[in-house]
Design a binder for these strands. Structure first.
Length: 782
DNA sequence: AAGGGGCACATTTTT
DNA sequence: TGTGCCCCTT
C-alpha cells in the first residue's frame, strides 16, 4: 500500500507575481532581468532541457527564476515541483532565493532538497515495500564501517588483510552505480577477500535490514528498487511531479541518474543544470558522462548554453577557457564577458623555492592588497591537498593575519557530538544497536568487550535488539555482578530518560542525559587540551537542537546534514581546497602548488590516466574561475612530502595557459623552468600525449621535466639574497626553532613560556605545573 | 582500561 | 615527518 501523500494542496495566492504575470503586454520583471539565453532557459518549460551553465553565468538565477516562472504562470503548484541539489547548502540557498522571488509560498515547496533528503522522504512513506519500517535509522560512514567490521568478523575473514574501510568503499561504489548485491557482475567482486566481496555485500545488506537501517547509498538504491518493483508507486510520483529541476547535474552518479530517469519518464519535464567543465567528483562516483550523454538519454532535449560570464575579468576568463580546451571529453563552451576593463590584471604566475617561501610571498601579496584597502574576506587561497594549508597557517599566525580554514573536520562528525547523538538515538529508538554499542561503555562503566559480545550473541540468537538482550541478561547470572549492576543502572537511566521524552523540553532532556550518564563529567575530568573545546561543542549541540520541534525531529535533520553554518563576521582570508571552493567566488584568488605530482596529483594520473588528468584540469579551471579580479598562481621548486624533500617540476597546466592573459613574474633572471605556451603550444603541451601517463618515465615529457628540474634548482641558488639569507639564518642559527620567552604548548603539561634553550632542550615554565625541561619536539608554538 | 610502542599510511568529500 | 590505529603490556 502506498502511504498517503501530504495534503498540502497549495492555494494560488491572489497578490504576488502570479497575478502580475497574467498581464500579457510586458514580460514580468523577473524575466526582464535575464539575458536572452537565461530567459530561454527559463521559458522553455516543457520537455527535457539541459542548461550548460559555465562558471559565473547565473546558474542559480536561472534555476530559481525558472521555478518562479512555473509558479507565476500557474503551470504548477509549489508541491508539484521536484528540485534536487547535492548539498544542503545549495538547497537552502535555492529556497532562500526562490522565497525572494515568490514570497512565502516557497514554503509549499516540499520537494526541494538534496537527493538524499528527498530519497528519505519517499522511502519513509513506502518503507515496508522494501523491507524496512518507516522509522528506519540512517547510518553515517562511521556506523557503516563499524557494521562492516562486524560482518567481516562474522564471516571469519581476516580484518587486517581486508579492512572494513576498503569494503565500505567497494560497496559504496556499487551503490553509486545502482547495483544491488544480485546485480553486481560476479567478476566485479573478485578483488575483495578472495572473491567474497559480493557475499559480504549481501551479508551487510541483511544486517542493515535486521537493524532497520539504511546507509547513505541505500537511500537512493532502495528508491530505485521501490520504483522498479512497484510501478504503481512510481506512477504516483509521475502524477505528482509536474516539473523536475536538477542542480549540478555533472556531479550525478549512476544511481542518481537512474533515479532521475525513472521519475522523468512521467511528464518528461526535466531541466538539468550543470557544467561539464566543473565535474570534479569523479572519484566519488560522479559520471561526467551523464551530462555528456544528456541528449541521447532524453530524446528531444533542448540544450541551452550560458556563456556570458558576470564574474571575472576577460584575462581570467581567457586563461581559464584556454586551459580547459585541452580536455577532450567536453561539450565545449567558451566563457566571455562584456565588461571592458583595460586595467585588469593578467593572471600572474610566480615561483618560489619552497612552500615556506610560497606562503611568505602570498602573505606579502595579501598584506599589500590589504594596504590598498582590499578586504581579507575577498581573498582566498585554494590548494589541491589539505596538507598544503599548513605552511599558510604557520605564516599567517606569524604575521598575525586573520584566516579561516573552510572544510576540515565537521561539527557533526566530531567524536563528542557523535557520542552525544548516540545517547539521544538510543533514547528515541531503543533498537538502534549501533548507537547503543557506541556508548554502552562511554564513559567507562566496566562494561567491556566481553560483556558486549555476550549481549550481541544473545541478541542475534533471539533476533532482538541489543538493549533488549541486555534487559534480559541483566536478570540472569550470566554477567558478573559488578558489570551486571552497571548495566542495570544504564538500562534504568535509559528507561527514565525515555519516560521524559514527551514531557520535558528536549533541550533540557538532552542536557540531563549528558549529565546523568556521566558523559559531560568524562570530559570535565579530561586533562587533555581539547577537552574544553569538546564541552563547548556539546553546549553548541544543545543550543542548536533547541531550534527543532522535538528530539526525533532533530535527529532526522542531523542524519542528513553535516555542516553547521557558523556565520563568521571577522575579516579573514579563506583557506580551502579547490574542491570546496566550487560554487564560491572571491575578488582575489591565490593558487599555490602548481607542480607536477601535486597538481595534477600523481595519484589521479596513476589511478585514472587520461580521465584523471582531465578531472585535475577541470579542477584548475574551477580554481581560476573563482576569481573576479585577480588570480595568482604559484609553483614551488621544493616541497616536503611525507617528511622528505622533493624537488618539483612546474605543473603542465602552466604550459597550458595562454600567453596573452598571463604575466609571468620572473623573480630571477636565470629562471626558465617553464614557458607559458599559448598559441604555439596549443593542444600539445609537453605532457599532453595520449599514451599512458602512468609511464611518464620514458616519455619526452618526463625527460623535459628532468631538464626543467635542473633549471628550477639553478633558480633556487640564485634566488634573491634576502630570502637566501633568511634560509641560512634559519638553518645555521640556534638548533631550536623557538625563542626565549615564547609561549609553547605541551600535550601533557599545557601552556608555558620558554625560559631556557639548550640545543633541542627547552626549559619551559608551565602555567599549571611550573618549570620543566622538555625536548622541543614535544612542544608546539602556543 | 589506560598508556605506550610498533606500524602502516599519507588527495579531493557530500550525504 | 606526523598521525592514527591496533595490539600489547601493565
Amino acid at each position: 500500500m502506498t502511504a498517503p501523500f501530504d495534503s498540502s494542496a497549495p492555494v494560488p495566492r491572489p497578490g504576488g507575481i502570479a497575478a502580475r504575470a497574467l498581464g500579457k503586454a510586458a514580460p514580468p520583471d523577473y524575466l526582464a532581468r535575464l539575458n536572452p539565453e537565461q530567459r530561454l532557459a527559463v521559458e522553455t518549460t516543457e520537455g527535457p532541457v539541459l542548461v550548460l551553465a559555465g562558471a559565473g553565468t547565473g546558474k542559480t538565477r536561472v534555476l530559481t527564476t525558472r521555478i518562479a516562472h512555473l509558479l507565476a504562470t500557474q503551470k504548477a503548484f509549489p508541491s508539484q515541483i521536484l528540485a534536487v541539489t547535492f548539498t544542503n547548502k545549495a538547497a537552502r540557498e535555492m529556497r532562500h532565493r526562490i522565497g525572494e522571488l515568490i514570497g512565502p509560498s516557497v514554503e509549499g515547496m516540499n520537494w526541494l532538497g538534496t537527493f538524499h533528503a528527498i530519497g528519505v522522504k519517499i522511502l519513509r512513506r513506502h518503507a515496508e515495500l522494501v523491507g524496512l519500517r518507516s522509522d528506519f535509522t540512517i547510518l553515517d560512514t562511521d556506523d557503516q564501517i563499524r557494521l562492516m567490521k562486524q560482518v567481516i568478523q562474522a564471516e571469519g575473514i581476516d580484518e587486517k588483510r581486508w579492512p572494513a574501510r576498503q569494503l565500505a568503499n567497494l560497496i559504496d561504489s556499487w551503490k553509486n552505480r545502482g547495483l544491488s548485491p544480485k546485480d553486481v557482475p560476479p567478476g566485479d567482486g573478485g578483488s575483495f577477500a578472495d572473491g567474497r566481496g559480493i557475499k559480504l555485500y549481501q551479508a551487510y545488506q541483511d544486517r542493515l535490514k535486521m537493524l532497520n537501517a539504511c546507509d547513505f547509498g541505500d537511500l537512493l538504491l532502495e528508491n530505485l528498487r521501490l520504483f522498479r518493483e512497484h510501478p504503481d508507486v512510481l506512477k504516483d510520483y509521475h502524477q505528482r511531479f509536474h516539473y523536475m529541476l536538477v542542480d549540478e547535474y555533472q556531479d550525478t552518479n549512476v544511481a542518481q541518474y537512474l533515479w532521475l530517469r525513472l521519475l522523468a519518464q512521467g511528464r518528461k519535464n526535466i531541466c538539468c543544470v550543470g557544467d561539464d567543465d566543473q565535474s570534479i567528483y569523479g572519484w566519488r562516483g560522479a559520471e561526467v558522462d551523464n551530462i555528456l550523454r544528456f541528449e541521447k538519454d532524453f530524446p528531444g532535449a533542448v540544450v541551452i548554453k550560458l556563456e556570458r560570464n558576470y564574474r571575472s575579468t576577460s584575462h581570467i576568463l581567457g586563461a581559464a577557457s584556454h586551459l580547459i580546451t585541452h580536455n577532450e571529453g567536453r561539450l565545449g563552451k567558451t566563457l566571455f564577458t562584456d565588461a571592458v576593463d583595460p586595467d585588469a590584471a593578467r593572471v600572474r604566475v610566480a615561483s618560489s623555492w619552497d612552500s615556506e617561501e610560497e606562503a611568505r610571498a602570498v602573505g606579502e601579496e595579501i598584506e599589500a592588497l590589504q594596504r590598498q584597502g582590499h578586504k581579507l574576506n575577498d581573498m582566498a587561497i585554494l590548494v589541491r591537498a589539505s596538507f598544503q594549508m599548513r605552511s599558510f597557517e604557520d605564516r599567517f599566525v606569524t604575521l598575525g593575519l586573520n584566516y579561516r580554514v573552510i572544510g576540515g573536520p565537521r561539527f557533526y562528525e566530531r567524536q563528542e557530538i557523535r557520542d552525544a547523538l548516540a545517547y539521544f538515538r538510543v533514547v528515541v529508538q531503543p533498537s538502534d544497536d549501533l548507537a547503543f554499542e557506541r556508548i554502552v561503555n562511554v564513559p567507562k562503566r566496566g562494561i567491556g568487550d566481553t560483556t558486549v559480545r555476550l549481549l550481541y550473541d544473545h541478541a542475534r540468537a533471539r533476533q532482538i535488539p541489543i538493549i533488549q538482550a541486555a534487559d534480559e541478561l541483566v536478570h540472569t547470572e550470566e554477567i558478573k555482578p559488578k558489570t551486571r549492576g552497571a548495566l542495570r543502572e544504564l538500562l534504568a537511566s535509559f528507561e527514565l530518560w525515555r519516560s521524559k521524552l514527551a514531557a520535558m523540553k528536549h533541550g533540557e532532556l538532552a542536557e540531563m542525559i549528558l549529565e546523568e550518564s556521566g558523559y559531560t563529567e568524562m570530559w570535565q575530568q579530561d586533562r587533555s587540551a581539547d577537552a574544553p573545546g569538546r564541552l563547548e561543542n556539546l553546549k553548541e549541540l544543545i543550543r542548536s537542537m533547541e531550534e527543532f520541534e522535538s528530539l526525533p525531529g532533530f535527529l532526522e535533520h542531523i542524519a542528513l546534514v553535516t555542516d553547521t553554518d557558523r556565520a563568521e563576521n571577522q575579516d579573514a582570508v579563506s583557506i580551502m581546497t579547490l574542491h570546496s571552493a566550487k560554487g564560491l567566488e572571491f575578488e582575489t584568488v591565490f593558487l599555490p602548488g602548481w607542480e607536477e605530482g601535486l597538481f595534477p596529483h600523481q595519484r589521479a594520473l596513476d589511478e585514472s590516466g587520461r580521465a584523471g588528468l582531465e578531472e585535475e584540469r577541470r579542477l584548475a579551471y574551477v580554481g581560476i574561475t573563482r576569481a573576479k579580479q585577480r588570480a595568482m598562481i604559484w609553483f614551488s621548486s621544493n616541497r616536503r612530502i611525507h617528511g622528505l624533500w622533493q624537488s618539483n617540476v612546474p605543473s603542465r597546466f602552466l604550459d597550458e595557459l595562454p600567453e596573452k592573459h598571463v604575466e609571468v613574474i620572473e623573480q630571477t633572471s636565470s629562471y626558465g623552468g617553464y614557458n607559458v605556451g599559448g598559441v604555439g603550444n596549443y593542444g600539445a603541451s609537453r605532457f599532453d600525449r595520449a599514451d599512458s601517463f602512468s609511464n611518464t618515465y620514458s616519455t619526452p615529457g618526463w625527460q623535459r621535466a628532468q631538464a626543467n628540474k635542473g633549471s628550477a634548482q639553478a633558480h633556487a641558488r640564485s634566488a634573491p639574497r634576502q630570502i637566501e639569507g633568511e634560509l641560512v639564518a634559519k638553518s645555521s642559527g640556534t638548533n631550536s626553532k623557538y625563542a626565549l620567552g615564547e609561549r609553547v604548548f605541551h600535550q601533557k603539561f599545557g601552556y608555558g613560556a620558554i625560559i631556557e634553550i639548550e640545543g633541542n632542550k627547552l626549559t619551559v615554565d608551565f602555567e599549571k605545573t611550573g618549570a620543566k625541561k622538555v625536548v622541543d619536539s614535544f612542544v608546539s608554538k602556543g
